[in-house]
């Protein structure tokens, strides 16, 4: 599988600093087309206006959480099968199971490092 590094990536987190960290790490990995959203509802609006190759989302956000966003995306948006990685501090078994049942592609627990992010992205979109 050839990875298109020009694909659009949507990152969602209510902490601007975390958005900045993820965006910079993606930039170091060669992905430059990165859009940001501060919660699930903002992400959904952005999602409707553009085609995305990957979504990376936090879980714990208001008013719409990451799991709600995932369910909305999988539940019938135009790009319902987009790879979706959850990056979160929620690290209970029931969270991982709930995310998987909702259709998450991979799950990263905070704090994480650049290598883990790279591995998980590779696992859902292919080696790059």
């Amino acid at each position: 599988m050839t990875v298109d590094k020009n694909m659009n990536i949507l990152i969602v987190d209510d902490y601007k600093t975390m958005l900045r960290i993820i965006k910079n790490l993606l930039k170091q990995l060669g992905f430059n087309n990165v859009d940001e959203a501060l919660d699930g509802s903002q992400a959904l609006q952005t999602f409707q206006s553009k085609e995305y190759g990957l979504v990376i989302s936090d879980w714990n956000m208001e008013p719409m959480s990451g799991i709600e966003l995932l369910k909305e995306v999988r539940g019938g948006s135009k790009n319902a099968d987009v790879p979706f990685i959850m990056i979160t501090a929620e690290s209970k078994t029931e969270n991982v199971i709930a995310a998987k049942q909702a259709g998450v592609s991979n799950y990263i627990v905070k704090p994480f490092n650049a290598e883990t992010l790279k591995q998980k992205i590779s696992s859902v979109i292919g080696d790059f």
């Binding site: 879980w59 714990n60 959480s65 709600e68 501090a89 929620e90 690290s91 209970k92 905070k110």
Partner: peptide, 9 residues
């Protein structure tokens, strides 16, 4: 879903 938002463990 609310029961699953507990923050860092």
């Amino acid at each position: 879903d609310a029961a699953l938002m507990n923050g860092p463990q």
